[in-house]
């Protein structure tokens, strides 16, 4: 057991000190600040936010449309199609990658720098460190994903316009309802993204290696995506995080259906809880005196 436990003895002095320990909020603030100051996070954020603008401008300057992509045929019809096409592409490859980049070295960076000794043996409870880091990673991931969605919507509205939207079933949707459709679609992929982030955090804790923390979830995501495109067992496909990230299609159909989203939420919750629980168990029992 680590030296953190020795500080938890029920003496008056110790309990007084424990009460004054910084909690999850303090760790969250510090870790979020560290993330925001990282060059890689800034660069990824900027590139991802700029990408939809480049994409729609290129589409508008060519005759052909990406007809093989859902909503690709409507890119010149309504600006609301831009965030949907970006979502189709991003959900396949980019969103798992973003989750891994942000979360993959959240814990292993402290291993590499040997800083756990200083934070865990003196000032902060182990659980606070864990949850502060987890919440910071998830917050940053969610902000980046939603920023991409907002940027894509803005790019579509500015470059194409706010004409009526078209549902997956081919019916016209008013611009007001289209805002809600786009927002709900982007929000619906967050549970899947959080699942990938939880996997990255877990690998980061288990391996204490930043490269593996980033690479393993990306490889898992790619393998799952490849399976998604195979004509293999459908039931297995339904149990993958990638599947939960396409559930928005049912919400935008006419008539709409929610079964894929409801089931996807359950699948993503299971992945998230399992990976975070495993990471917590290992992190809690870690001997930080080794560095």
């Amino acid at each position: 057991m680590s030296s953190t436990a020795s500080l938890d003895t029920p003496t008056a002095t110790a309990s007084h000190l424990t009460q004054r320990r910084p909690g999850v909020g303090a760790v969250y603030g510090v870790e979020l600040g560290k993330l925001v100051r990282q060059t890689k996070v800034r660069v990824i954020g900027l590139v991802m936010v700029a990408a939809p603008w480049v994409f729609i401008l290129l589409v508008l300057h060519q005759d052909r449309l990406p007809l093989e992509t859902l909503y690709g045929r409507y890119l010149k019809t309504t600006g609301f199609a831009t965030p949907m096409v970006v979502l189709v592409v991003a959900a396949q490859w980019l969103l798992p990658l973003i989750a891994s980049f942000i979360s993959g070295d959240m814990f292993s960076s402290d291993d590499n720098h040997g800083t756990y000794k200083t934070i865990l043996t003196r000032s902060v409870a182990r659980g606070s460190v864990f949850w502060g880091k987890v919440l910071a990673a998830l917050s940053a991931t969610i902000v980046v994903v939603l920023a991409i969605g907002a940027s894509a919507l803005l790019a579509g509205l500015v470059c194409v316009g706010g004409q009526d939207f078209i549902s997956v079933g081919g019916t016209l949707v008013s611009p007001g309802a289209a805002f809600a459709d786009v927002a709900v679609s982007w929000l619906s992929v967050l549970p899947g993204v959080i699942g990938f982030a939880a996997l990255a955090l877990c690998v980061s804790i288990l391996t204490r290696n930043s490269v593996l923390g980033v690479v393993v979830p990306v490889v898992v995501g790619l393998v799952c995506q490849m399976y998604m495109f195979l004509n293999a067992w459908d039931t297995v496909r339904h149990l993958m995080l990638n599947w939960t990230m396409i559930a928005w299609r049912g919400l935008l159909d006419d008539p709409s259906y929610t079964a894929p989203l409801v089931r996807g939420l359950g699948v993503a919750a299971v992945y998230t809880v399992v990976f975070l629980a495993l990471g917590y168990l290992v992190f809690r029992s870690r001997d930080v005196k080794e560095g």
């Binding site: 045929r73 019809t77 894929p260």
Partner: peptide
């Protein structure tokens, strides 16, 4: 030709996308 924007588009009735509920 889209009357609202003037853009030339693929005719939706000659090519369209759709999805169905795989749990129904």
């Amino acid at each position: 030709t889209d009357q609202a924007t003037g853009a030339v588009l693929p005719d939706p009735k000659q090519g369209f996308d759709g999805c169905y509920d795989v749990y129904d």
